[in-house]
Design a protein around this nucleic acid. Sequence first.
DNA 1: TCTGGGGTCCTAGGACCC
DNA 2: TCTGGGGTCCTAGGACCC
Length: 417
Amino acid sequence: MTVALVDCNNFYASCERVFNPKLWGKPVVVLSNNDGCVVARSNEAKALGIKMGTPFFQVRDLAAKQQVQIFSSNYTLYGDMSRRVMDILSSFVPDTEIYSIDEAFLSLKRFKNIDPHHIRATVKQWTGIPVSIGLAPTKTLAKVANSIAKKSSSGVYCLPEEGKELEALLSKIEVEDIWGIGPQRALFLRSHGIQTAQELRLCNDHWARKHLSIMGLRTVLELRGIPCIPIELAPATKKSITSSLSFGQKVTAYKELEESVSFHVARAAEKARRYELAVEALVVFIQTSRFRQDKPYYGNSQTAILPYPTAYTPDLLRAALKALEGIYREGCEYAKAGVIFTGLVSAKCLQTNIYESDETFHGDQALIKAIDQINRKKGRNTLFFGSSGIDRAWKMRQERRSPRYTTQWSEILTVHI
DNA sequence: TCTGGGGTCCTAGGACCC
DNA sequence: TCTGGGGTCCTAGGACCC
């Protein structure tokens, strides 16, 4: 077996439990930003029939009746816990691809003798987070193995190599549960008589290439045990940076829209600087609610090309606010706004212009560095741009967030004896 | 009343080039 | 009657992932 997929069980819910042991054995649910949808559930909450992605208001009554413990997303905490888990994994197997906040692929080519049970026990002991580990010859099959591991008592499962046993297992995997097969493809496959992973595995290559695109063909081959999706050991270079949020309450005033766009520009620019990237173009977008039946939907976006690649917030703000002017429509109740930075290039080797001074291109570097440093040290938004507003009536709802136990001294866990 | 955020890749079609 | 061939780049939209 050359691939191991390590996946944290009910990750956000588990993070909450680590610092609040009373939650063990109880149904726990974590909500998306703006307390909108259910994005994580403990096994007890799953057993109550609360589905992933359900709008919270639809299960509010059920949750209250069943005493479900509800949390707003605490990404500061989850991000930090994720880093701890990943650090442990790469101390066992350095050839690791961090695939998402709660998942990592380990390449076992150079580490054939690694004991997955030991990894699992160490992560649990050092962080409190339970993980499941699936082993297989390809990433797609490792995903299958992991789903079986999740249901097993040991939390580890190694997929059989070939033959009847493997075929029987794959016959029990529905097509929509295969990594890379979403709702559209699943519908299509079922309409052509392909219901399970085993059936997809046996389909014709040309047919798969034609109807499922090159990605679909890769999935088919991976199910056969032929690796087509490599484990990426080096983090890929970023191609875009997005910052956007739904408003806590509907926004109609231009000034508030302007504030939120400014807020997102500043946030995305900070991220760009952290990655040492400069921005060639940005997109500003605003939209009303897609769910309102009584009012027409309005959503629009405008792209602004910067005169030169930059990560200097004031230059990006100017361009973004000008773009916003072009798409604002009076009388709409906006639900969401955001920015996307694209055309990202390394800030370390920028093409400059001999007719302009350095400051024109890079802005006041000392100032922006100082702002970033202070915010890193003293907490986000200690210093901010005035155009982001002070009251921020539009800010997102976050009514049940737990403390940021591991990253803020003032919110550290206290123990009473 | 209340419905997340941040990404990637592929494909088709149009514009444009020689 | 009959109207080239080969290529690149860009964009919008679709599909997928967690």
